[in-house]
Write a protein that binds this DNA or RNA. Structure first.
Lengths: 340, 340
DNA sequence: ATGAAAGCGCTAACAG
DNA sequence: CTGTTAGCGCTTTCAT
């Protein structure tokens, strides 16, 4: 059974002084006698006093907690972001509450409510694939709770944002395929309601255009997971056997595509070159190693939480909103290496 | 700036009734008139009322939050555990506070304090590699806060535990190497202060013993990360060129070992067979695909949090402690497939 | 069926 | 330098 945890009242009683003296002594209030302060602190230590954050939060209307809503934790990119957020929050003395939406809109709504109820001081959000309506996020704004979107941002809501230059990254990826000689380049894309998916698609198109390669909508399909790749790649390549390059919207899809290609006894990169997006650890493990676009998750986390703390701690500039765009870089590996 | 969030007081004022009526109406207290209840609930909805969990927690001495202390979030196994915990906690209406120790003892102490201050209702812990003293965890016991260790458990403290049968898993792995014909089997191990490392080492030894293969301490080395594997594998294999099997304490080490072996122009599995432990997604991506021991992270998370809720919600059996042992299974893949 | 008031742990006027 | 008191939002006796 949960015990009564030591309170300042207990300390006060033990020393026969008032709670306010204890409170002040613990936080080095200048008015307090040095002797008293020392005594109080020592007693607190002995009694294993830990301040009650619930009480403090109630009093100050500040929980010292930030919330995260993220599609899924088990994903190298997202867990890297969380790690960055956690490390930075730790330095600043904040706790982190993590909610995963599991790409589910309804769960995202409940997550938002939970964070509202927990009176978090700020939220960091990456929206679920299935989310089309964003009103559940507006409540944070109404309540004056700072909110920063990262990666999967919300198009309709004006807030701070940390994003990758998806368009630019996709452009780099596609142009790289063109440079190594690919003529018929397919794009395995994510659902177009996500801005990141739109950006990557645009970058792909721009690269084709700038290199005078005709855009063929048949070469673009919705396929953004390993499972879908296993399901669709075979049929796709039978239907379009002249495909000689594939730009996949993420690494795990790209790797699955390569595995299917290998099973079909075609070779990567010689018959079909493949490039992904993300540069997780898998890219280096895959055979051939996967060319991809580097996307710094940890850095995205620290940048996002940095924006958040700026808003939380100086509520002055509360209505100027910034967008930080992280510039991705091309990582060339074996899956696009045709020099032979 | 953080706004005043709507309270029951605001609702009471709006309807010109007392706060106690509002409170009761919101939680379907039988004494309340149906009309009133309906009215209150409707008004609450309109005013976007969200109960203040800080106040509730203070009042009830229960935060509806559970804490996790974990070595690192960016790790497939651990993030799977968190995911399991989060999903289950979500179902039960609990929030999850995540702290990562980054394998750092001092940070683990501070994490524990933070969770104590946040008055979490229970904690789930996997200890850091560098932790040798466990007194910071005892405070949870003193405070009557249920605690469950998972995977990296604490040897000295009596609590609920969820572990993998590491000894058994390691036995399976090693015996599999023996069965396919390996004679000189090395073990790339983790620091022996971790119980899991001890277990895996013992399983390795038992398999050798039961198969009458002499145990050679020179074939055991501390090497439990990708980096260490890149650094040490080459030298090791030069020194012991007759090594024909390696059991690595985890998958990422095993995969790095295979990469080094390939660079040395030896073949896996024919010259040296390799087996890992964990069965993360990497095992399937590696070339050759990695034989390994399956370790169910998500299930470990749900089991652990299930133990925790039993303790939290029926504080009756508060001093009977259970240990759940998850039985790992052998997954045979190409890295140990010598049938040719 | 509803209201008044106390109290959870803490801080911050205000008073001495 | 220290103590008294009110109040953060909520629940819960105890009245009515």
């Amino acid at each position: 059974m949960k015990q009564h945890q030591v309170t300042i009242k207990d300390i006060a009683k033990a020393l026969d002084i008032s709670v306010s003296t204890v409170s002040r002594a613990l936080k080095d209030h200048p008015d307090i006698n040095k002797e008293t302060r020392k005594l109080v602190k020592e007693t607190a230590r002995q009694m294993k006093y830990e301040p009650n954050l619930l009480a403090l939060g109630l009093r100050r209307n500040k929980s010292n907690t930030i919330g995260i809503i993220i599609p899924e934790i088990v994903h190298h990119f997202f867990s890297s972001v969380i790690s960055g957020i956690e490390d930075y929050a730790y330095e600043r003395g904040y706790n982190v509450m993590v909610c995963q939406s599991n790409e589910n809109y309804n769960r995202e709504i409940i997550n938002a409510q939970a964070l509202l109820s927990s009176r978090v001081d700020g939220v960091l959000i990456s929206v679920s694939k299935s989310t089309l309506d964003f009103n559940h996020f507006r409540n944070f704004i109404t309540q004056g709770i700072p909110m920063v979107f990262f990666d999967r941002v919300c198009p309709d809501i004006v807030t701070d944002r940390v994003i990758i230059d998806d368009e630019g990254g996709a452009f780099l990826a596609t142009e790289h395929l063109i440079n190594i000689g690919c003529k018929r380049i397919a794009h395995f894309a994510a659902p177009q309601n996500l801005l990141i998916a739109q950006g990557r698609f645009s970058g792909y198109q721009r690269a084709l255009r700038q290199n005078s390669i005709p855009f063929d909508p048949k070469l673009v399909l919705h396929c953004d997971t390993q499972e879908l790749a296993f399901e669709k790649t075979g049929k796709f390549l039978e239907e379009f056997p002249d495909t000689d390059g594939i730009f996949a919207v993420n690494d795990s899809t790209a790797i699955a595509i390569m595995q299917v290609i290998k099973k079909m006894s075609k070779r990567v990169p010689d018959d079909i070159s493949v490039i992904g997006f993300g540069d997780g650890p898998n890219a280096l493990i895959a055979c051939p190693t996967l060319s991809t676009i580097e996307q710094k998750g940890y850095e995205m986390g620290t940048e996002a939480v940095n924006f958040l703390f700026n808003k939380i701690e100086n509520d002055i500039s509360a209505d100027s909103f910034k967008t930080k765009v992280l510039i991705p870089t091309l990582v060339k590996r074996e899956s696009t290496d045709r020099r032979k």
